[in-house]
Design a protein around this nucleic acid. Sequence first.
RNA 1: GCCCGGGUGGCGGAAUGGCAGACGCAACGGACUUAAAAUCCGUUUUCCCGGUUACGGGAAGUGCGGGUUCGACCCCCGCCCCGGGCACCA
Length: 898
Amino acid sequence: MSEKAANYDPAAIEPKWQSFWQEHKTFSSADPDPARTKLYVLDMFPYPSGAGLHVGHPEGYTATDIYCRFKRMRGFNVLHPMGWDAFGLPAEQYAIQTGTHPAITTRKNCDTFRRQIQSLGFSYDWDREVNTTDPDYYRWTQWIFVQLYNTWFDAERQRGRPIAELPIPPDVAARGPVAVREYRDSRRLAYYADAQVWWCRQCRIVCANEEVLNDGSHEKCGSKDVERRSLKQWLLRIPLYAERLLKGLDNLDWPEGIKEMQRNWIGRSTGAEVDFSLADGSGVLRVYTTRPDTLFGATYMVVAPEHPLVSRLADAEHRAAVVEYVRQASRKSDLDRTELAKDKTGVFTGSYAINPVNGQRVPIWVADYVLMGYGTGAIMAVPAHDTRDFEFAQQFGLPIICIMEPDSADADLKARVLAGEACWTEDGCYIRSANTETGLDFNGLNKQDGIARITAWLEGKGLGTATVNYKLRGWLFSRQRYWGEPFPVIHWEDGEISVLDEKELPLRLPALENYQPGEAGQSPLCNAGDWLNVVDPKTGRRGRRETNTMPQWAGSCWYYLRFIDPRNSDAPWNTAKEKYWMPVDLYVGGAEHAVLHLLYSRFWHKVLYDLGHVSTDEPFRKLFNQGMILAYAYEDPIGSKVPCDQVEERDGRFFQKETGVELRQIVAKMSKTLKNVVNPDDVVREYGADSLRLYEMFMGPLDAVKYWKTGGVEGLYRFLNRVWRMIVSKDGETSSVLPDAPVSREQERLLHATIKKVTDDIEGLAFNTAISQLMIFVNEFGRAEPRNRRAMETFVLLLSPLAPHLAEELWQRLGHPDSLAYESWPTYDPALLVADQVEIVVQVCGKVRARMSVPADATEAQLRDVALKNEQVAEAIAGKTIVKVIAVPGRLVNVVVR
RNA sequence: GCCCGGGUGGCGGAAUGGCAGACGCAACGGACUUAAAAUCCGUUUUCCCGGUUACGGGAAGUGCGGGUUCGACCCCCGCCCCGGGCACCA
């Protein structure tokens, strides 16, 4: 046996235990083990960038690792995997510049990430590692795409069904096979269509709406050179699942804020579609409104510039202006249209519609504040009760008729609303809302009753129907790139589209010489001649493969399912294993994925559920968002950034070490350009992984935003040194730890309080306070020698999820040959938590006047008596009348006097 | 504008109706040391009063203003500030 080191030396013990765990496959998850309760704990897997890990990455990973180690010791069969979301632009950009195949770059980056993650001692089951760029993985991503393609949504049953079960209406069937094909295609969850898309000129890539930020820049590259283009694209009919996605949120243990963000994104609204007949008798204009009750206040109509009726509505006099307006609107991006505080624009078409409730003629305008993509692309405008309409009406001098007296205490505001000088969108009492001809009258009603009354009336007359609308739009699912999953799709010369058979998957990416995408939006795959062109061996029909690839979301939409059965070559996963492991019990990751990734995953999962491939309706039972770790950055007076290691602090001010120039401190995300990235390798080298892990958890609550201070790691390193010295003596032995060393009553209480606190806190993901408690324990037990062996062993077990390397080493030195990973988690005796004597305070009118030591089980009456006899209390209440005495056992007594 | 978080010492934070500031960082003082590092011990919210000092006593204090309560960082109402999300979705 080698000589035992006498000092805490993480550089020696951490690699030792990491190899031990790996060699013994300590953390490999037993597949369906009916004897133990399963627990599936998942981290959002990373995109392995070339820059490697920064200290923000391990925050969530450390949290889940602690939780998993804890749960294993409590008898759970834990599934805890890690993998790589490895398709993405940077590797492709690098390929364009250097010709290096993205697969090579990706492999290198994954190796770096794996090495870094492993150096932190996380208890992943590495045999389950997956990589979205691996053909054995993306084969099944393609397979799921085929499932989506072959599924339609049965609105009545609210679920997806195989396309073969889609009923074909007789009139469609009668028009022949092409009509049937088109009918089916119009119902598939994946469809191919012309779409107005965002095009980033710098990346030469299509971006989804949500990838274009508010300031008009592309979130991936930051370029503002983003414009609208119309291109053939694959889209997914996620809006059909809007209602399911919305309702499913209710039963999830997710942060309320995230659920709310998803609800807002889905954007359900209820209202009515109402038909206005055109004054010239040529037809109807259908609008969608959430306020059909305000029909009497409608003073004009607006159609979106893209509305199909626009050219018909424009009369001779206004045609030129309308055409010009529509032309200008088409060149504007949505962004230009919605730019903040911008004046509204629009032109009158020259046509009128008839308001169905009172027969009045209302002018029809075209304006780009109405969007074609929502509702019917046309609205009735009620300026008195809608802020947008109000602004528009004011700008163009259109009439504003108030039809509801506001429920408002503000008399001035009320008067202005009634006079049509202000807008009121809240509840109130209808006025001017009656018409003798139609017999409608809801004057005096409130909003809720008004909406019900008018909706019933409209439906009765066949003029409108109650309607539900969602903001959620079709999901743009293709990118003009190389480094993504190829679509298993062939476009045939006769216009038919077909998907590959399951047996033909995976459709691999071809090797290319040139990765440069075309300027007109062609994918680099257009250059892959041999791969591109296909001939049907049976019919000789020629075809061309789809050259777009899937977006990065695709691989991450279902990776949690592949982890269940990662090496299965016959199926994406074994259904028995899926049934055992799903759903994910705890999913931890950044809030930046609040909407997109989590919504897309839920959508795919629901489709897979409808088709019978998975057993749960929702994939992630509990979600937790770790807060971001930010870092300080420094800039000199000229504004150039100074690397953190060249900064020195004096009296709360910051100076550049060499030049002595005073610097400005700013707070920001870690990034190369700010030169404030902290690499975990450096921290591990200096303090060890256990110190890094502990510091990340000790910084504050897991969900809070935190600021990295490398100095803080030092404190945790000192703590671990104290732990070491508490157990290991100067001779490298554990000679100060004795089985029969005495434990005082107070120490015994502290031991059990520590078990309780650490247990409860880890269960509640409150690691910062668990660590505090361990520190309190060490502060107490570190003082006295000899130390009780049982107490020390219990402590080591409590520490082990947080600082596993150190704990294993101490456990071994305490004479245990096996890893502690599956030792039973300590339990506490509630009886021992209570001290015999407790100190309580006595307040007089809420101010502390005395402290007394009393038996812990003293009753209210006893407390009261003791308190009133107390000298200081007597002094404080002298000459006053006691009004009331509140005694809270174990806490305090409050004497109220007058 | 709307929705969701959050505001506590020099700093990170703790306490969710019962002693505000646990635990850590930083700073300062002391012990050990030839010295340094490491380690250990102590002090550190603010203001006021008494005292030469050691120290003792008092008051205020959790963004601001009000309220509920014997008692409020915690609950309620109104406001301010910071962070995140959405933003002409009718």
